[in-house]
Nucleic acid binder design. Structure first.
Lengths: 124, 124
DNA sequence: TTTTATGTTATACTCACCATATAACAGAAA
DNA sequence: TTTCTGTTATATGGTGAGTATAACATAAAA
């Protein structure tokens, strides 16, 4: 799996890593049981510090996306706390949709966007 | 319009202000042409520094939600750059939906959430 | 005119977070 | 034993958040 980082982005590096790995899981680019590169290896590949990768992995572990195994490394292991996920999504959507609504984005247009994006996550 | 702030939140105070004002516009709590409190007045009301409110207003101005008038103060004035808004929403949704998809949230459940939230923005 | 309130700008300070650097440890694989 | 792993600790430079104080030009109200 290819992981890239934008050093000019306002977003923290470890957040970019976290997001890209979540995207990789959603698009089935990496799957349950697959191992991610070691913190030192990934850090060396993209040219950043080991601790930055470690922080991304720690966040992903806390959020229930991976488990850290001393033998296998960081392994994709999804913790399906769906209620929590729904609550998180609702909180984020409430702000995001409010901003869109102010800008004239209709409910139907949001539905179309959701369909378009979700179709990227279902081409099994 | 009631504006509250959570000092224990991880989110920056000026971001909380920005979000609440956008929510206020979306729910028609405040409307085009309405004036927001002055930076000093709002800062005094919620017990924070003037510059923090000023930063929120500056962001809202840059994002096209208000215009700052020396006579009327901060006035709601929507700049409908819909293309930019759609692009922003798509970028945010791509991450948000990926996380949800990993957690087992279906496309239909997202649609239901969108409908539920949008209905709060349309009870004119 | 004087007073008051406005947005705006400048500077400086504390605090927290980000990213880095170096180092060390215990456990497991080669 | 050697090597690699995750993990932890400590320190440093940089950046942004929030506050504090101050000053300015403008415009409304007295």
């Amino acid at each position: 799996m290819l992981i890239e980082v934008d050093f000019n982005s306002e977003e923290a590096l470890y957040v970019q890593l976290r997001n890209q790995i979540i995207l990789g899981i959603a698009t089935s680019d990496i799957q349950e049981g697959d191992a991610l590169p070691s913190v030192r290896q990934l850090a060396d590949t993209i040219g950043i510090n080991m601790h930055t990768v470690n922080k991304a992995y720690t966040v992903l572990k806390r959020e229930g996306y991976i488990q850290l195994d001393r033998r296998k490394g960081a392994v994709i292991a999804l913790d399906l706390d769906k209620l929590q996920a729904l609550e998180d999504m609702e909180n984020h959507l409430r702000i995001l949709l409010a901003a869109g609504s102010c800008k004239g984005i209709t409910r139907d247009e949001v539905h179309a966007l959701v369909d378009e994006i979700y179709s990227e996550y279902e081409h099994l």
